[in-house]
């Protein structure tokens, strides 16, 4: 039980509870992508007006993401699932076409590793992909947590539009771009 994966109907509500917990313990709106902006503002503001604000007031967000890293570490060290992730047969076939046959990690070790970093696959998936995540979330004003969970929970229609666009982008990427890069 301790090491088996959580079902969606437990994980989802627990994530939803992050919204009231952060509000009640300190009036904080749930969101994660802002941490990337605070890192820019604190480390390399470069006189860019977008990074000239009192980031120290938002430092709670950096404490929060530090916790996420630690949580990932604790779960991987002490609670990790000994079995490979369960994947449907049709998805296994798709992954095999991508050259992925090792399902042991949370990210496919055959692509996301240091040796692949500077190959076409690695550059596209890790570096271009990461860049799009950072650029896109800030341009959109939030990510899955800020828009899709916090924004939708507070019934904000701009967040609904953002969420729909996240999904459309994801569909395009998973059906066309990822297969193009990995095939």
């Amino acid at each position: 039980m301790f090491t088996s994966p959580l079902p969606w109907y437990i994980a989802g509500p627990l994530i939803g509870l992050m919204v009231p917990i952060l509000l009640i313990i300190g009036n904080k709106s749930f969101g994660i992508s802002s941490s990337l902006r605070h890192i820019c503002a604190s480390c390399f503001p470069a006189n860019i007006s977008f990074f000239k604000y009192d980031w120290k007031k938002e430092i709670w967000n950096l404490f929060f993401v530090a916790g996420i890293i630690l949580g990932g570490f604790i779960a991987a060290m002490y609670m990790s699932n000994p079995n490979p992730i369960e994947i449907s047969e049709s998805m296994q076939k798709t992954f095999a076409q991508y050259g992925i046959t090792d399902f042991s990690g949370l990210v496919p070790n055959q692509i996301f590793n240091w040796n692949e970093l500077l190959t076409f696959k690695g550059l596209s998936m890790m570096i271009l992909g990461g860049f799009l995540v950072g650029f896109g979330t800030r341009y959109a004003g939030g990510c899955t947590s800020g828009h899709s969970i916090m924004g939708l929970s507070t019934l904000q229609w701009p967040s609904l539009i953002a969420t729909i666009c996240f999904m459309i982008g994801g569909f395009i990427s998973a059906w066309f771009i990822v297969p193009f890069i990995l095939n």
Binding site: G130, V133, C165
Partner: peptide, 10 residues
């Protein structure tokens, strides 16, 4: 930005 993030997410 939403479309860009979605692409990067996948």
């Amino acid at each position: 930005g939403g479309l860009m993030f979605g692409i990067g997410w996948a």
